[in-house]
Nucleic acid binder design. Structure first.
Length: 507
RNA sequence: AGCGGGGUAGGGUAGCCUGGAGUGCCCGCCGGGCUCAUAACCCGGAGAACGGUGGUUCAAAUCCAUCUCCCGCUACCA
């Protein structure tokens, strides 16, 4: 293998259904993936970040019919909402896949299907399911409310139809082995245990198609059998192959695959950790290297739901408080792996206390001081033992931040970053450079030299979380977020511009 | 029912995997200080026997067992 190219890192979010507008939970997943992507870039990886929308569900066809519009147009419109969100949240995606567009994605299904078929893992069988005529949908037992359709309050019929099935059962042992040995690393490990546990009780084959009639002709036809439409698995899960270029640039695809990390919600673990790797094994593709599973967001302590009417539109929040504060809140206040809460009140508190009062204030007082009292320049000063101790503490924290990021503990890493800013404020306060400047200029310069370095470190470390703010901060000291390693070193001199306020108070 | 996750000061959290003084963070409360800074910042204080019980250990929030409360998942639900 040629050793000159950068290590690649392919990471992707799941693709949301477009039959409902984005909510704050979608934003969480986008930001998580983006933070990891940006961190990996700082570490020097060649990162590819994929996202998109899942548009081939029957529900789209049904609501389009109701609205009297073409399904294509409805999808286009709703997909745009998600695209607006990923742009507004400043996600650095490299590709955005729309599964209803008859291009690479449709070609992908042919490739994947053929490969699995060639392994003898696709066969026809009668599918029997609970079907609500009103909804025109099959329901899982768990989705029913007291045995009734949650929407129509009617008893669904048992309906049979001949569909294609995928031979999941054949892969049970291989899957268990792959996950137990962390060939597919499931993060956090509690989810891994869940998955293994589930598999041990036996895996059943699953259906991978629906009749064209039932699908209302919407979706991707089964390769070689236009009377059937692909069900979600070969379609939506396959998007990861599409994004990597399987149908457009096979050479690039071969370099990109396997995917290094899936970022998904807890509700779809099974499909990503079991169905999907099995399909890949069957098709002769390498399995995903890791799957990061996040929790769900409640709103003011309550489950988000349309009927309660408490669904939070992330675009509203972004418009109100700004992109970076929202990113910060999602990463810091919501545990990376567990459920978390969204609260307007907490969001304001966090902005005012942590971003404005702690981080923003430290940067502002340091840079303002340098630009107004020291002519915008500081160079290296002789450091004493106490200073070296502080520097050592900071370096130690940088190491912890790195460790936490490597362990995908995005919230804990952010906590550590704030500690650095905290130390900075304390040091500034206790050193009182505003007094020193009148008595001992060299000493004042030394304090500011250290503080400027802390600002620089903070700029690099916060970059994955709050890219525009970090770039602005680093811009005031004529730097850019180039590499994570830079956060482990001190810079020897600074040219400082008079800073603008980094974060504004939230009212 | 089975499996999994949670129960840490008034509220919210981190720590638990890889035991070692209740250690930390945000809010709130009380008392001081500072004035470089976005009424921001700093210091001190009150406040928790880390859900209950039992065990392992020199040592447990951290490991084991059991009980209890909350929340998820249990197959074609993204």
């Amino acid at each position: 293998m040629p050793g000159v190219s950068l290590p690649k890192f392919y990471i992707a979010t799941s693709i949301p259904y477009v039959n409902a507008p984005p909510h704050i939970g979608h934003a969480l997943e986008f930001v998580q993936a983006d933070v990891i992507a940006r961190y990996r870039r700082l570490k020097g990886d060649n990162v590819f970040l994929a996202t998109g929308t899942d548009e081939n569900s029957l529900k789209n066809a049904l609501s389009a019919e109701k609205l009297g519009m073409k399904t294509e147009d409805l999808c286009q419109r709703n997909s745009a909402l998600f695209r607006d969100l990923v742009d507004s949240i400043n996600m650095s995606y490299d590709t955005f896949v729309r599964t209803s567009l008859k291009g690479d994605h449709w070609k992908m299904t042919q490739i994947l299907w053929d490969a699995c078929n060639a392994s003898g893992d696709i066969y026809k069988k009668k599918y029997s399911g609970l079907y609500c005529v009103g909804c025109e949908l099959f329901y899982a037992e768990g989705e029913l409310d007291g045995g009734l359709c949650p929407e129509h309050r009617t008893k669904p019929e048992r309906v049979e139809e001949e569909n294609y099935f995928f031979r999941l059962s054949k892969y049970q042992d291989r899957l268990i082995a792959a996950i137990e040995k962390d060939e597919i690393r499931i993060i956090p490990s509690s989810r891994k245990a869940e998955v293994v546990n589930f598999m041990r009780s036996g895996l059943e084959d699953f259906s991978v198609s629906r009749s064209v009639n039932r699908a209302h002709g919407w979706g991707i036809p089964v390769p070689g059998d236009p009377s059937q439409i692909l069900y979600v698995w070969f379609d939506a899960l396959g998007y990861y192959l599409t994004a990597a270029g399987i149908a457009s640039d096979r050479k690039a695809f071969n370099e990109m695959w396997p995917i290094d990390m899936h970022v998904i919600g807890k509700g779809i673990v099974r499909f990503h950790a079991i169905y999907w790797p099995a399909m890949l094994m069957s098709g002769g593709f390498e399995v995903p290297r890791s799957i990061l599973v996040h929790g769900y967001i409640t709103v003011e302590g309550e489950k988000m739901s349309k009927s309660i009417g408490n669904v939070v539109d992330p675009m509203d929040v972004i418009r109100k408080y700004g992109t970076d504060p929202v990113r910060y809140y999602l990463m810091k206040e919501i545990s990376t792996f567990q459920d978390g809460d969204f609260s307007d009140r907490t969001l304001k508190d966090v902005i005012n206390n942590e971003l404005v009062g702690n981080l923003g204030n430290f940067v502002n007082r340091t840079l303002t001081f340098i630009s107004s009292k020291l002519g915008g320049k500081v160079e290296k000063q002789k450091l004493g033992d106490e200073d070296m101790e502080l520097v050592g503490q900071i370096t130690g924290l940088v190491g912890e931040v790195e460790r936490m990021l490597e362990a995908e503990q995005l919230n804990v890493a952010l906590l550590k970053i704030l500690e650095i800013s905290n130390l900075g404020n304390r040091y500034f306060q206790n050193s009182a450079p505003w007094k020193l400047i009148k008595e001992d200029e060299a000493k004042a310069k030394k304090v500011l030299f250290i503080c400027a370095n802390i600002c620089r470190i903070l700029g690099i470390l916060t970059y994955p979380y709050m890219p525009s703010s970090a770039e602005r901060l680093l811009g005031y000291i004529h730097e850019t977020p180039s590499s994570f390693e830079e956060a482990k070193k001190l810079s020897n001199e600074f040219k400082v511009e008079k800073p603008e306020i980094l974060f504004s108070r939230a009212e």
